[in-house]
């Protein structure tokens, strides 16, 4: 009897720990948990200083999002990257074209944020030119202040690990952020079509978009 009770207790404790760790048996990796978490509850991104946005004054992230008024698709990269960022860059290139083809350029834009402290605005500009980025759709910015950079990476759930040959290993995905500064959706690399479908549904109409729609209204409008 006592043994049965002990076994039940161990089962409850063990299953409870596994349930808690996997978000109710839905996520075994931090990455999938991060995506599900954002999907359930959009997260307000922190206000970190940005540098290198061409044509605008250097501003803070939330201010920049509000000013622009479009739904922003953000990826995290660094210009020296030889692998993942290049793949994302290529896909951003295709997305840039798809946005124009769909006529979404007034409602959706792309923003590449560099987490590498050695990336200067000039390096980012050169990188943008190499990637044939159209400044009307695709912007680049660095996060120069260390505290702000850490806060942004933490809020987005990006972990950057130094790797051999001076590279960084980092989890990569596309992040849809509303004009109000809410991170509403995280989509994996290679799912550009699905992401643009989502953006088309979630982004404010062109006329309203420029009038800086409130973030909460957008956050609710997702999925």
């Amino acid at each position: 009897m006592r043994m049965a009770l002990a076994i039940c207790l161990v089962c409850i404790l063990g299953a409870g720990a596994l349930y808690w760790q996997t978000d109710g048996f839905t996520a075994v990796t931090t990455e999938s948990a991060r995506r599900a978490d954002i999907r359930r509850q959009p997260r307000l991104v922190p206000d970190a200083a940005l540098a290198g946005l061409p044509g605008h004054a250097a501003g803070a992230l939330r201010e920049e999002l509000r000013r622009d008024g479009r739904l922003t698709i953000i990826d995290f990269m660094y210009t020296r990257c030889a692998s993942l960022c290049l793949a994302m860059g290529t896909e951003f290139q295709q997305m840039q074209q798809a946005i124009k083809d769909r006529g979404l350029q007034d409602r959706v834009r792309l923003l590449s944020l560099s987490f590498d402290p050695t990336d200067t605005p000039r390096l980012l500009q050169e990188y943008g030119r190499r990637m044939r980025a159209d400044p009307a759709v695709w912007d680049f910015a660095a996060l120069p202040a260390a505290a702000g950079r850490e806060a942004v990476l933490k809020a987005f759930g990006i972990v950057v690990v130094p790797a051999p040959l001076g590279q960084y290993e980092h989890n990569a995905a596309y992040h849809a952020v509303s004009a109000g500064g809410y991170l509403t959706r995280i989509v994996d690399i290679g799912n550009a079509e699905a992401l643009l479908d989502y953006a088309e549904r979630a982004a404010p109409a062109a006329s309203a978009g420029r009038r800086a729609a409130s973030g909460l209204a957008l956050a609710g409008g997702g999925s």
């Binding site: 063990g14 720990a17 596994l18 931090t30 948990a33």
Partner: peptide
């Protein structure tokens, strides 16, 4: 039995990447 079950759960927990 209860002890081995406990150890099994601990083992399973530490195989979760998260």
């Amino acid at each position: 039995i209860a002890g081995l079950l406990f150890a099994s759960f601990v083992g399973a927990y530490w195989m979760i990447p998260r």
